[in-house]
Write a protein that binds this DNA or RNA. Structure first.
Length: 273
DNA sequence: TGAATTGTTATCGT
DNA sequence: AACGATAACAATTC
C-alpha cells in the first residue's frame, strides 16, 4: 500500500532520526526476507554509520559509510516504527536496528512481504526502475515516448515500476481520473493533449499527496490525510466530484480500479451522429 | 470461511 | 525474440 508519497513521508520523518547514527546491531525475526542473506547483512551492518536516508521509487535507501546501501521495500504492509520504551511493543516487528545512542528502529510488517536488501552496487539493484515522476528529467517528451514505446492498457502500464517508479493502485487511479483517461485505453491511443494532461496530473497528485503526508486508507499506513481528498479510489458508489455520476469499481489487469464512467470514456463519444 | 488485498516475478501465448 | 497478458505468490485482515 505505501506508494511514492507514503514512502517519501517516511523518509522525511526518519531522516533526522537516522542520518549520522551508528548501527550497533541488526536483528531479524523473518530472515528469509533479508538479502543476500540474514547472516551476511547482520555481520556487515554491525558498526556501520548511516550517512543518508533517501528514496528511489518505493525503495527506502540507507547509504552506509562503507559505500554500501541498505534498501528497504515496504511492499504491502511494511512500516517503520521508532522504539518507545514506555509504550507497548508494536505488532509484527520483523527487524530491529539498535543504534549507538540507544535508539532503536523497528521494521514492522504484518504480511511479511517487505524486503531488506544490502547491496554495494546501487545502480544494478535499481536498474529496472523507470524515471522518478517528480524529477526534473521526467519531461512530457519522455512520458510521451514511454507511452509510444509500448501499447498497453494505461493502468497496468502506469503500475509497472520499470515504466515509472513509485505509482501504485491509489495514485494510478487518481491520476487517470484527473486526466479523464479510462484505465483500459491503450497507451498509443492517447492524444497529445491527453498525455500532456496525464503527465501533469501524475505530478500534481503525487505532490499533493506528499503535502498531505500520504493516504491513510486502513490500518496499514497511519498519519496522512490524502484519503480525504481522493476523488475515485475507495469511492465506489459515491458521486463523482465533477459530474455526480456514481463512481464504479471495475477490475483491470487483476486490480481493483476506480473510475467515473462519465468522465473517463473508453471510446470518444461523438456528440452528433 | 473465504474473499480481498498489492507489488513483483514467473509463465504462457502470440 | 520481444512484448503483453495472465497466474501465482507472499500472509494477513475482516
Amino acid at each position: 500500500m505505501p506508494e511514492l508519497p507514503e514512502v517519501e513521508t517516511i523518509v522525511r520523518t526518519f531522516r533526522p532520526r537516522l542520518a549520522g547514527q551508528r548501527i550497533t546491531r541488526f536483528t531479524s525475526s523473518w530472515p528469509k526476507h533479508v538479502l543476500p542473506s540474514y547472516a551476511a547483512v547482520r555481520r556487515r551492518l554491525a558498526g556501520r554509520t548511516i550517512d543518508t536516508v533517501t528514496r528511489r521509487g518505493k525503495f527506502i535507501i540507507l547509504t552506509l559509510d562503507n559505500a554500501s546501501y541498505l534498501l528497504i521495500h515496504l511492499r504491502m504492509s511494511g512500516r517503520f516504527e521508532w522504539f518507545a520504551p514506555d509504550l507497548p511493543q508494536p505488532d509484527h516487528v520483523r527487524a530491529t536496528w539498535d543504534l549507538a545512542t540507544g535508539d532503536r528502529l523497528l521494521f514492522c510488517d504484518a504480511r511479511k512481504f517487505g524486503r531488506i536488501v544490502l547491496t554495494r552496487d546501487l545502480p544494478a539493484t535499481l536498474a529496472d526502475l523507470g524515471p522518478e515522476p517528480l524529477s526534473r528529467g521526467f519531461t512530457l517528451e519522455r512520458f510521451q515516448s514511454l507511452l509510444a514505446a509500448r501499447n498497453r492498457q494505461m493502468k497496468p502500464l502506469l503500475l509497472d515500476q520499470s515504466v515509472i517508479a513509485g505509482l501504485g493502485n491509489i495514485y494510478t487511479d487518481e491520476s487517470l481520473f484527473r486526466a479523464g483517461v479510462h484505465p483500459c485505453r491503450p497507451s498509443r491511443g492517447l492524444t497529445a493533449a491527453e498525455s500532456s494532461t496525464l503527465h501533469t496530473a501524475i505530478r500534481a497528485v503525487l505532490r499533493e499527496a506528499i503535502r498531505r503526508h500520504g493516504t491513510s486508507i486502513d490500518w496499514i499506513y497511519p498519519g496522512g490525510w490524502m484519503q480525504r481528498h481522493l476523488r475515485v479510489y475507495g469511492r465506489a458508489g459515491q458521486p463523482c466530484v465533477t459530474c455526480q455520476t456514481p463512481i464504479e469499481r471495475i477490475v483491470v489487469g487483476q486490480r481493483g480500479t476506480h473510475i467515473c464512467p462519465h468522465c473517463q470514456r473508453l471510446r470518444r463519444c461523438r456528440r452528433r451522429g
